[in-house]
Amino acid sequence: MKKLIRLFVFFLMFFIPASRVCAFSDGDSVIKIIYKRSYNNPPFPESTNNQYIIIDGNKSYCLFGEGVRGKDGKIGARVDLMKDFGNHTLYFMGPMIPEYTVNDYWSDSLPAMHWTIVNQFTTIKNNYCQKAVTNFRGREYTAFFALNIPIQDGPWKFCGLPGLIVKLGDSKGIYNFEMTSFEKVPNEYNLGIGKENGDYSLYKPLFKKWHLRRLEKDKARREADPNCLDCGEGVTVRYTFIENLLD
């Protein structure tokens, strides 16, 4: 019996690290994941776009577009967000023109949210999934992660579950992500991020100040020329933030 317990503990020691895989590394290959991102905020019509994620070793890159192949044969793309699982840090692009450009990045904790795993299971696109919920910066989210894909990643800032997030949405149905593709591809990518300027606690008040200044300038422009083509009574411009930056 003692031998049996020792054997069980021995196998458990191997199992725990394996279940905590948060990165992918396979020589010259990377994992490419595509999420369909839907944004549905009435009365505006629903719009969708793709979010591309490349997982290379300990790093996961969330790209702005699919990328463009350069003369050197490598695919380059602007990186919206990079998760460095080795350093437990997430870096996100946060331009505030003119002080900070698209080459300026800010750091955030990784994972940035705390999940509650729920005892509910379902199959999504042939993946056996479990449900998890979180309340992250003003929105309540429900995610389904694949128990058969032990990669602790997901769309945008979402990660930190025992498997890859294949479906995620907020309780109001505004933001929705659904994995549409998961494949191993040759590593032809040349990806990187710019300078880090500070963490989220520094970024948030700076963004709020910058955004309010942007709104004031725009209001002043519209008042100065009420007949301009993009002005007038029937014009609405509405900003929606996935994380509450204006608290």
């Binding site: 944004y39 905020n41 009365p43 505006f44 702005f64 602007r78 919206d80 967000l81 996100f92 692009m93 946060g94 698209v102 945008w156 800032k157 993009d230 007038g232 029937g234 014009v235 609405t236 411009v237 509405r238 900003y239 929606t240 933030f241 996935i242 994380e243 930056l245």
Partner: peptide, 10 residues
């Protein structure tokens, strides 16, 4: 790119 959106209607 940072996950936020702007909606416009004219």
């Amino acid at each position: 790119p940072n996950g936020n959106n702007v909606d416009v209607s004219c």
